[in-house]
Write a protein that binds this DNA or RNA. Structure first.
Lengths: 178, 178
DNA sequence: CTATACATGTAAAGGGTTACATGATTAA
DNA sequence: TTAATCATGTAACCCTTTACATGTATAG
């Protein structure tokens, strides 16, 4: 039940339309939660029905017309409750590790190529996050708590990508050139 | 579509019943793919129908009676094909990071406690993996490829937990004592 | 004989993914 | 005026999660 709260957070940061939200999920929110536009539209509908958000008044609501949402007090309260909630970490799901374990049983055909490909993808993602860090959190750090929290979240994404880059590099070294 | 292949791998390592598989998923397979017994029974049914596995002949098949499965040649072939397949890494889903980002907006009530709790859980998991490593991959390493692959998979789990322990420790330091 | 653990399963609800449908706006 | 792009939405399918149902074997 995290998607609605991801949306509430995003809307509190800045009122947006469904498509704008989708784009922000592809970018900044994407490094810890992803969603497609279909999910987002469905969830926006539910949140509106629940009275947690509302569409900004439009002259005539028409399909295909941009619709901007903002969070209502009830929505902010709901988010506050959710933040204080306790939830166990879910085990990770890494198909690549599964493939590697299967490869130990049926043979590692093509595995090195796949590892190399993933290494490049994670390196690329890491570089992107580092660019964001340089841009949004330059050295003379502000010390407000919200800023520190946002920076910590980004560092989570960064360190996660570093983990993959490191592990994939080690794996390729250990497995050697075919 | 990874669960059936996780099951095929597990069954190739050792023919098992549904409940045994569930236990193995809770343990060794769990550090990169998890599944409940309901999922596993359903998937065993599908795999049997597809002709990828078969139940070992039982005198009289009765509900509540243990049923052991083994992989058929078609199943092994399917797994081989899947291993060679290419698949992009999925973005991570970490509700805790989402909570932290929400906390930057609505306030970090109770966040430190939750971080501390997660730190303990991840530290525990890390210790467990390290115990497994000591037991299953002792220093004089064998050099067969399957062994190296299995060890790499375990190290993936280990390094992932190390990432969390490190990040949570940093976060708690940075946020300070309330 | 009763409680407990073992073992297999069914049902329903929710979330995520993919494919498709449709209208509005803008640039060539 | 046509094509591309922006924008919102529906539908179907699959996977995961949670709750429940049922039967077998065993220990006290």
């Amino acid at each position: 039940m995290s998607l609605p709260h991801a949306i509430l957070t995003a809307l509190l940061e800045k009122p947006s339309s469904g498509l704008e939200l989708t784009r922000r999920f592809d970018k900044s929110i994407g490094y810890f939660w992803s969603a497609t536009h279909q999910q987002i539209y469905r969830e926006l509908g539910k949140l509106e029905q629940a009275g947690h958000i509302r569409a900004l008044p439009a002259p005539v609501p028409v399909r295909g017309q941009r619709k901007e949402y903002e969070v209502l007090p009830a929505g902010r309260e709901e988010l506050g409750t959710w933040v204080a909630r306790s939830e166990d970490p879910k085990p990770m799901r890494a198909a690549l590790l599964l493939r590697m374990r299967a490869a130990a049983v049926v043979g590692a055909t093509g595995l090195r190529a796949e590892l190399t490909r993933h290494l490049a993808l994670h390196q690329e993602q890491l570089d992107e996050y580092l660019t964001i860090e340089t841009r949004d959190f330059p050295p003379p750090r502000r010390h407000t708590e919200p800023d520190r929290l946002r920076h910590l979240v980004l560092r989570g994404g960064i360190d996660m990508e570093r983990f993959w880059v490191q592990w994939l590099t080690d794996a390729l070294t250990e497995l050697g050139p075919e």
